[in-house]
Each structure stands twice: as C-alpha cells, then as structure tokens.
Design a binder for these strands. Structure first.
Lengths: 233, 233, 233, 233
DNA sequence: CATGAATGAGTGTTCATTCAT
DNA sequence: TATGAATGAACACTCATTCAT
C-alpha cells in the first residue's frame, strides 16, 4: 500500500499519524506537535513533507477514494443488474468505513464541511465517486430497473445522505459497532423506493400465472415526475 | 420572538451576530472580535452574557429546535395519515433551513460534528425531534400504513440523512437555492420505500386465490425482516 | 470604633471586606467584585468611597496604627523602666496581630513591601511607631539601663524584624497559633542583648577593687527558661 | 556559574532578566514582554523554557540557596566556636544580599510572602538553611556556649528576622548601602543575648588580669563601638 | 446614594511555521 | 534529510473603572 521509497514511507507514516490524531482531537484542537509525536518525527520534519497543517489534512484522503472508486467500478462490471450495483456500493461504503474508522472520522467530521476542501484535487475523486452512483441510477432508470420518474440526484442524495448519517452516528455515538450489518436492510429500504411498482407487479403477476385483477391501474401514487431541481449537481 | 427585557435583547443581538459570523467563517476562524463587531458591542460585553466562546456557540440553538418540535407536533395532530406526517416533517425541515440559512450552517457544519455538543442541554431537543420522527414511523408501521418489515431506525436515518445531505450541499455549493422545492419529490421517494408494495398486495390476493406455494407466512420477497441492528438507537 | 454617619459605616463595611479578601487572596488576585460581594454592595459603590483599588488597599490601615501608637504611648508613661517599655511594646504588637489576623496579613504580606505605600500618609504612623521604639531605646541607653555601645537602630531592627518574622510565620504556616505566648521569652532574649552584662559590671568592680570574681548578685532578670512555644518550627 | 550547554545558557539569560525585571517592577506589574525584552528573546521563547510566568518566578532561586548553604557549611566546619558560626552566617547573608540586590528583592519582596512558593522545591533549600541555623544554635546551647534557657526557635527568628528586616529596608529605602558593615555590630548584639552571663564574666576577668591601662573607657572586647551606619534611619 | 451595564486596555499563552546546522 | 531552537502573530479572556439611570 505504502510506496517503497524511504521518503514515501516517511510521508505515509506522517499521514497515518495525522489521520489518527485529527480523528481523535479534531483539526483545530490537534497540534502539529501531537502529530509529530505520534509519527515519531520532529515538527520540522512534517514541514519537509507538507507545506502546512492544512495541506497535511487535505492530503489524508490521498489515493484512497480513487482506489475505492476503481475497485468498486471493477466489481460493478460483473453485476448486470443495477439494483445489485446499488447494493454493492452501499455494502462497500459501510465495509470501508467500518475498517477505516479514523479515515471515516476525518472525512465525515472534518473534510466534509470544509469549504476549502472542495477546491482540493482529492475532492475530485469524491465527485467522481458521486458521479458513478449517479450513473448507476440513471442507467437503472434507462434500463427500466428503476422508476422512470425518479430524480437521480435525489436518489443519490438519499443513498449518500443515509450512509453519511449512519457513519457519523457510529463515530460520535459508537453505535452501531458494525455498519456492514446495516447494508442489506438499508439497500432493501432504498431500493424499495426506487424500483417500479408495476414492474414489480408484473413480476408477481408472472409468478401468479394469470392473476391480473389490478391490471391497467398504474398505481404510482405520485404522478409528478419528480423533476425537482436537476441543477443540484 | 426575542425576549423583551433589555438584557435579553442584548443576548439575542449577540447570538444573532454569532450565528452569522460562525456561519460564514466557522467556529475556529471566527474571533470574538468578529462577533462583537457584528453585534455592535465590545468584546467584554460578550463575556457578560456568555462565559466562553464555546458557550456562545452552544447557546445559538437556544429554544429554536424545541419550538420547531412543538410546532410540528401541533400540526401532526391534524394529519391522520402517517405518510402525510412524514411529508410534513420533511417539508418543515426544508422550510426551516431555507429560511434560516445561518442557523443551518451553524447546526450542520459546526454543531453536528461536535462531540461536546452531545452533552449540552440543547442537544436534548435535537434528540426529541429525532424521537418524534421515530414515533411517527413506528406508528405508521403499527397502523399498517408502512411496511411491517421496516427498521424504523433505518428509515429515520434515511429521512434525516437525506435532509442533512441536501442542506449541507446547499450551504456549501449554494444549490439548490430552494430546498423546499425538493420536499415533495423527496417525500415521494422515501415514502415509496416505506409503504407496502402493490406487488405485495397482489401477492396477498393471489394467496386468497388458492395458489399458495409459499404460503402466507412468507409474504415478502426479501426474507430477512430487515431487523438490522436495532441497537443503533 | 466605626464612625456613626451612615456613609462612614458603609466605608467601614467596605474596608473590612477588603481587609478580609486581600488577606486571603492577596492584592492582585483579589478582584473588586470579590470585595463588593463580601461587603454586600455593588462594584460601583466601592468607587463611591474609594477612587481606586489601590486607594482602597492603602486605606485599610486607617487610624489603626495611630491608635495603637497612642495607646502604647499612654501605657509607656506608667512604666518608668525602659526594659519594661520594650517588653510592653513587644507584647502589644503580638496581642494586636493575634487579634487582627487579617490586618496582619494585609500589613505584613502586602503593604510592607509596597514601594508606593511608603508615600502614603498611613505610612507616617508606621514611622512614628518606629520612632517611638527608637526613642525608648535611646532613652534606655542614656539612662544606663541599656548598654552604652548599642546601636539603637540595630536594636530596633532586631525588635521589629523578629516580630515581623514571627508574624509572617504565623500567617503563612499557621504556627504558632498564639504569638502572645512568645512575647515574654522574646522580650527576655532581646533584652539580654541590650542590658549591660554582669561581666562588664564585675569588670568595673574589679577595676575598682582588684578582687572578687563577680560577687553574689546574679542579676539575670528573667530566670524563666524561655521555653516558649517550641512548636513554631 | 552558568551551565555550559547552550540551552542552559538561554535559561540562565532569561532567569537573570526575570530577576532584574521582577526586582524592579514586582511580579504582577512586570510583563512577560518586559522580561523577554530584557533577555533579548521573544515572548514565546520564554515559554520554551518555563511553562508559565509563575514558574519563571519560582525558578529564580534555582540552586542559589543550596549553593550558599553548602558554602556556609564548608566554612562552619573550620569554626569550632558556635558564636563564630553565628557571626559567620550573619556576615554571609549580608554579603550575599549586598552582592545580589535583585535576588534579594525577588526573595524578600516577592517570594517570601507567596503562599505557593512554600510548596516549591526551591523552598526546601530555604528550610534547610533555616535548619542549619537552628542546629548551630542548639549545638551552642549543648556545648554551653549559649545560655541553657534559650529557645532556639526564637533565637533563629531573631537572627533571620533582623536580617530580613534590614535587607528589606535596604531594598526599599536604599539604606544602608552596605549591609555587610552591619554584620559585626548585629552579631555582637544578637550574641549578647545568647551567651551566658557568668561564662562571659569569667572570660573578662581573665582578660583583665593585671592589664588595666585603658580601664573603664574600653570595657568591651569589641572595640568598634557598634556605631554602624547610623544613616539607616 | 446605589448600581446594572458596558467597555478599554491589557496580557499570558499558544502554535504553526521557519531556518541554521 | 532531519531537527532543535526560535518566534511572529494571534486571541480568548479578565477586570478595574465609568456612567446613565
């Protein structure tokens, strides 16, 4: 995982220390000395690798998001159904945050609300991840797996929002200990809101062999195509 | 809204200034001088009303959450259907954050991830609000409006999580300008995931029709009753 | 003791509060609020009576020293022997500090080392007191009660210095609880150093007579073994 | 005297500056900036060496007292008579305060009345010094050099008290310029109060044996009429 | 006369950052 | 490359003091 050059190892060592310290104390309450102590280097050494405390913070995500992105993309290729892709994404998020609690804390408690972070290159990866989810949703809609009237942006917001909410709960309250256990039920819940009512109906009808009492009524309760504000990119 | 005594007015004046400044600069980057300048009082005066910068921050929510809670509760009484209650809650949240952007920023970007805030009395109100939502969900399940296999905690997480996600987006990216416009589509989306499926309905009908391969006991496609971890209180 | 006018009573009330507070916390660590709280008046009221915190401090001695001075002078008149005058002065000092511990603390710990206090009128009284002692010593020398070769200034320094040293010990260490018990032994000790030696006396006799080691008269005035309070470690 | 390591030299430099500034302005009226300016370092540098202003103050005595103690002890070994030991101690005290006026001011005006200082390690040295004096007195009593009925604690109080009184006079009033000139007369005075009347008498008799040119005019072994510095008003 | 309310002026302390070695 | 040493720049907080009521 860490690069092999000695210099790169030092950098990793500092980054891991920073991640740990920032996760525990928050960005402002953590001092460079805290980090250097944890990393077992001097304060000045940190400045050999990072130009400022802030840059150190923004360097923590590093390639992590991108790597996650790539791994997820690789897996998704093998999942023909978009429902399963959604399911996979949720699972992956939870698995990642479960196994990287410090990273989770830095990301969710510090970076997510940092205006400057939006301009950092690392944020591009976050955006790409986000775009991937959007694509999966749009694709699902196009393929008819998901309801036509879905606002993909809203769907994405509900997926990411719920995940984030649960991750933050875990960080701050310590519960649930294993997010991963929530991934199936959560996927079920969210997907229920996404799949077509009739599509499902048809499926049942097929199973039911000729039972079509409710036939033509497409009972989608809300006709409004939920266009909403598509600009909420 | 503001208390009438002169002293209380000063306090309100300072709180409003603090809300504005903290919303724009964040807690750590804002100085007491910034706040006192905005409030048109001296630095020292702030300390007449609040014992520390942190106490000033934690005083910003004040009675706001409680008031929202009470108003929502008052309205919910008139909505017999829990679907509408959910819809109303979402709408109210968005309306509130739309009309109180500074409060939104302080709440979502500063307080929500502050560990100490969890111990402040104001956080109790947040929790009660949260409990109200949970109750509405549980009630809906009990009444049969929502699917029996829902995990109410998970549903609540998806409601609050999505709202928060969208509010933060608005704060940081400025889009969408009006969250309120998202409330109907979002309610639709979330509620879709909560109400019993037509498919299930059909399925039940089928059962009545004499074809009963898998019987009444297993009416849901997903067998796992999505109990998830109920401990994520 | 306190003047009768209402205003004068207020002043006394504040002074007593200040004395108590300054004694306990020291001048700098005590705040005007501490004093006003103790005196049960408002901060501002203190400024009605004293122009500044420092003036308040310098007003604490008030007429106390002068009164002591006058009382001592009155008594000394009745003591024809200067040894007894010295004895009386020491006793009086200890009695006063024993019965006015807060005054003792303010005087010994705060005022005594305050350069500005030297210019205050109240310091005049201290000086007069000091001069009185000097006079008693000089008079004793002139009368032949004390050794001719004494440096009266040095003698005074040893009297006052020892008293101060013991008072400060009591204030800081709490021991001895009663200074007054030390007054006799201390007077014995100091007076021993002041009165003409037997040896000298005898020597003079020898010169006159040529014989006689020292005669029968062992004039050591105090036989008391000056056990005093051994606990004032 | 100063430690050799560069860091120790900086520390010494700061301590000397602090001693000078505190001596002139007092602890509370002196600012860290005053000290840092005098020491020609930055404010922050002071905090590299001392954790607080108060710790800086308490560090001023350092090893000084202990060193004095050891040097005095070394000398006392060569003085068989305890009278001379007392004499030596007084002389040493005066010599030290004469040559270290800033140290004297810090010790006598600031530390001596500081309750917290009593808990500092440096105060242990002061106590040991004090115990040394006590031992000399007790030994003198045991050896019969001093009167059996002396209270050693009281004697010590009179020795230290007188010294302190005179040192403070010098600091505050500037007089006498040279304390050392007072050491002989003071020692004479104090010792007079300590030695046995008869023992001394015998001694005089021996001296007198036949040589009586100067008879009555020069009755004291010490010729200096203890005029001392009469200006120490 | 008494005071609640307001503040100016000040200060100890922190810490990210630099740089000579 | 690594760091010990030094510091500039800030800032939260305190408190004696004022003054309108």
């Amino acid at each position: 995982m860490a690069s092999s050059s000695k210099s790169e190892m030092r950098k990793e060592q500092i980054l891991r220390a920073a991640e740990k310290i920032f996760a525990r104390k928050g960005f402002h309450d953590a001092t460079i000395s805290d980090v250097s102590r944890e990393a077992k280097v001097s304060d000045a050494t940190i400045y050999e690798y990072f130009s400022s405390k802030e840059e150190l913070l923004f360097s923590i995500p590093g390639k992590t998001t991108r790597k996650q992105l790539e791994e997820i993309e690789a897996i998704l290729e093998f999942l023909p159904r978009n429902v399963d892709k959604i399911r996979c994404i949720i699972k992956r998020y939870f698995w990642f945050y479960d196994s990287h609690p410090d990273h989770a804390a830095v990301t969710m408690l510090i970076l997510k609300q940092n205006r400057k972070f939006l301009e950092m290159p690392a944020y591009q990866d976050v955006q790409e991840m986000s775009r991937l989810i959007l694509r999966v949703i749009e694709e699902g809609i196009a393929k008819g797996e998901f309801r036509k009237d879905l606002d993909p942006y809203l769907v994405r917001a509900s997926i990411l929002g719920t995940i984030e909410h649960l991750v933050i709960r875990k960080i701050l309250l310590g519960k649930p200990e294993r997010l991963i256990d929530l991934s199936e039920p959560l996927a079920d819940l969210l997907i229920q809101g996404m799949i077509p009512r009739d599509g499902e109906k048809v499926y049942h009808i097929r199973l039911a062999l000729g039972s079509d009492e409710h036939g033509a009524e497409k009972p989608t309760p809300r006709k409004t195509p939920a266009k909403s504000d598509r600009s909420n990119r």
